[in-house]
């Protein structure tokens, strides 16, 4: 279609059932109606086939090989997966990933619920507060991680300085499991609490007001209303938020890498090495593509499992 073709203003559109289309034009438009939809969805499927499905299947294939970038590809069946099941560092990464995820998600959801509840009121500057709390979400992860890594330094970090007022000795944030998890979870929460607040707020606003009004008439207080009306109504949204957080959380990579001075090991004893980092270590540092692919699949399976559980919960709650 030429760019300079005159537009067809919609107001000209009126039913003209008497106009008989020429047969060529008729054929063309039949073809158009029947097949052009495929052309419109084709770009997605073509690109997705090349850059999504093919690599994913290839990952599945590589996972069955001892596949080195240098050139040796030996079929080894499920050896990679067997090795993975017995790989202490893999399980360590699983533990870290889920640990950080829990440590991040629980306070994040509570915070988001709290803030959404506050914002769901009559007030001045509603838009201003929304902008403020969601601002962290627009920043790049790398930037966030760099800033927080400095705030969480052991020797000259701001966080330790503040804690010093409360009599806390300087914490080696990178040095221990709980502290590194906390620091990373803080980065995640800073970035995502505001976002989840908005989602919960939207859901809260969708709750019909007359429910609250009749509850008020029955003498239910604010707190009571929150528990017996808001929470049950929010349940599907909460599960949605948890699912999205899980998928994001299981793929955690940038924050721990930059927090750990750019090292893929995630601490001297891999205190905060996540699954994605372990995959990167095996795939891109050690160039064991086969083993890295097996890790990638394990990660995917975990995501499916967790999402599946969430889906079942949604179904149950809808019924």
């Amino acid at each position: 279609m030429s760019l300079s073709a005159p537009p067809a203003p919609p107001q000209l559109v009126k039913p003209d059932t008497h106009r008989a289309p020429s047969s060529r034009r008729f054929r063309l438009s039949r073809w158009d109606i029947k097949y052009s939809p495929y052309i419109y969805v084709a770009p997605f499927f073509i690109l997705f086939a090349v850059f999504g499905i093919y690599p994913v299947l290839q990952t599945a294939r590589m996972a069955l090989y001892d596949w080195n970038l240098i050139g040796d590809h030996t079929f080894t069946g499920l050896d990679n997966f067997t090795a993975l099941m017995g790989d202490e560092y893999f399980w360590n990464a699983v533990k870290n990933t889920f640990g950080i995820f829990l440590l991040a998600t629980v306070p994040q959801l509570l915070g988001a619920l709290f803030l959404a509840n506050l914002l769901n009121q009559n007030m001045r500057g509603r838009m201003f507060f929304r902008l403020m709390i969601v601002a962290p979400n627009v920043t790049s992860v790398a930037a966030v991680a760099i800033v927080f890594a400095v705030l969480f330094r052991r020797d000259f970090g701001l966080v330790n300085w503040v804690l010093g007022f409360f009599g806390v000795d300087a914490i080696d944030w990178k040095g221990q499991t709980w502290s590194s998890w906390t620091a990373i979870a803080t980065m995640v929460d800073w970035r995502w609490t505001g976002y989840n607040t908005l989602i919960l707020l939207a859901a809260m606003q969708a709750i019909p007001k007359d429910i609250y009004e009749s509850a008020s008439l029955d003498g239910a207080g604010k707190w009571r209303q929150f528990w017996s009306i808001t929470m049950p109504q929010l349940r599907p949204t909460l599960i949605f938020v948890v699912t999205v957080s899980t998928i994001g959380g299981l793929q955690l990579f940038t924050e721990p890498v930059i927090f750990g001075d750019g090292r893929i090991l995630g601490g001297a004893q891999r205190e905060f090495q996540t699954i994605a980092m372990y995959m990167y270590e095996k795939g891109f540092n050690d160039l064991q593509f086969g083993y890295g692919s097996a890790i990638a699949w394990a990660l995917f399976i975990m995501i499916i499992l967790v999402s599946g559980v969430n889906y079942l919960l949604i179904r149950r709650s809808v019924k």
């Binding site: 690599p55 795939g283 699949w297």
Partner: peptide, 10 residues
């Protein structure tokens, strides 16, 4: 649901 990580190596 497919994570980037799954496709990244190939």
């Amino acid at each position: 649901m497919v994570p980037t990580q799954l496709a990244i190596i190939p």
